[in-house]
Design a protein around this nucleic acid. Structure first.
Lengths: 246, 246
DNA sequence: TTATGTCATATTGTCAGACCATAACGGATC
DNA sequence: GATCCGTTATGGTCTGACAATATGACATAA
């Protein structure tokens, strides 16, 4: 009756090649920066044609495990954060996640990021953040630029928390969420000013190394965003049409 | 002097194909489930050889934008969560993230997940969780199984929060962190029992729809994990050798 | 009618070999 | 040592081909 079907899965040559190389990378036998042999040689090593090798390589490339600094040079890479961000962002867009989902998570990530930043940021980093904030202040009216700078402000804060896991996790989410600003601004004219104010207070708290206060302001900032979203009626709207991802 | 260098980037034929198809998917012109033409036909459409098409397709495949339910059928897919989990997990492993980084994030994600679950889980879902917990209780001594069940317990709770963004973000992190259990257990014999206790309390809180209590227990549970990690001296250890990722 | 079996066809995975542009390397020159 | 230059080999692309097999149409059996 209950026959446990375990679907057999054929593994094609090009997959095996990709897997084999991947395994060697994960096992540490190939370290980031190492250069791989040419396609012809790889073909000889695995006993397959160059075309087959190439298909495998294409896969590894788009996995971010290898990359080509120049067409002739194929080396092992450590996956770049922005690649993952793109993938995750695309996935969330295609899944049609709602602003509520994004916001709920952001509501914990940004305060955490800000708290960590207060504990760990160097004064140089804080200065740089301040400069960025200056640009943001000067961008009133230019929606696209405002959004970009806001995104960068929050990313920067997260970086200053020196937690790469948090950076990786929050980036795609923040990116999608903060883009909603464009839809909120028309409904909430005062929103821009409150944003500036919140950022200022965050910077001040960072300067004072006051983690609690920094966290609190971050939380209020994100809560504020939500109020804006509510006014604009975005709560259960889909975050954005996937095409908007560059 | 400050000439703004705009690095031209050649785009190869296979990339253009991948990009073009990707764009059509993101633009919604191709919807998940839609079937794509055969390789030969695609080649004709783009004015390019089949080999070239194939390389482009390999990339889209590993991006999760298209997939083959059967070798002959190529259709548009919505990226699967587990694919992203794998990529992110690999990336974090290769970045050599520490337990501290993982824990700091988990410290906010799991309580949130649990709180949301308390608000949104159906009783059926809670029953299923209870069953899973039962298995966990019965797995004492079998380290690998205990870890797997613990991971699944937390994933399940997250699912019950019905927030896909949170699910996506926390999964790879939790996966890496909870594996540390194997390194902790030998140092903290009572740890296993406390884990069981915490899970029980979480389930009870979920049943009562008591979001605060659920969240509190989740937080304590993760804090507890950290104490274990400290005893085992893992705080700034690298989470795990990448090879351990299946 | 529905289910099973048969068969032709089209498509995929893989291979072999070839072409051209150019990146990389080594040597020559300054 | 730095710059120029020519050779070479490698990557991107193409053509053409072959075997295995999934698919769909058709025929037959229950």
């Amino acid at each position: 009756m209950s026959l446990t079907a375990k679907p057999i899965h054929v593994t094609y040559a090009y997959q095996q090649i990709a897997e084999e190389i991947e395994a060697q990378i994960l096992r540490g036998e190939l370290k980031p920066g190492d250069q791989l042999p040419g396609e012809a040689e790889l073909g000889a090593l695995f006993g397959v044609t160059r075309s087959t090798v190439r298909e495998g390589l294409r896969q590894l490339e788009s996995d971010g495990l290898v990359h080509r600094p120049s067409p002739r040079r194929l080396e092992v890479a450590v996956p770049q954060a922005d690649q993952l961000t793109t993938r995750a962002g695309r996935a969330m867009a295609l899944m049609k996640v709602t602003f509520r989902e994004l916001w709920e998570v952001t509501m914990v990530t940004e305060p955490l990021a800000t708290r960590l930043a207060a504990q760990r940021a160097s004064s140089d980093e804080i200065d740089a953040l301040q400069a960025l904030h200056g640009d943001l202040v000067g961008s009133e009216g230019e929606m696209a630029r405002t959004i970009e700078l806001d995104e960068r402000f929050h990313s920067r804060v997260a970086e200053m928390g020196h937690n790469r896991v948090l950076g990786l996790a929050r980036e795609p989410i923040a990116l999608l969420l903060f883009r909603g600003f464009a839809q909120i601004a028309p409904f909430a004219p005062k929103f821009y000013k409150r944003q500036i104010e919140a950022h200022s207070n965050i910077i001040a708290a960072l300067r004072d190394r006051d983690a609690d206060r920094a966290e609190k302001w971050a939380r209020m900032h994100i809560e504020d965003f939500w109020r804006g979203a509510q006014i604009a009626g975005l709560e259960d709207e889909i975050a954005l049409n996937a095409r908007a991802l560059s």
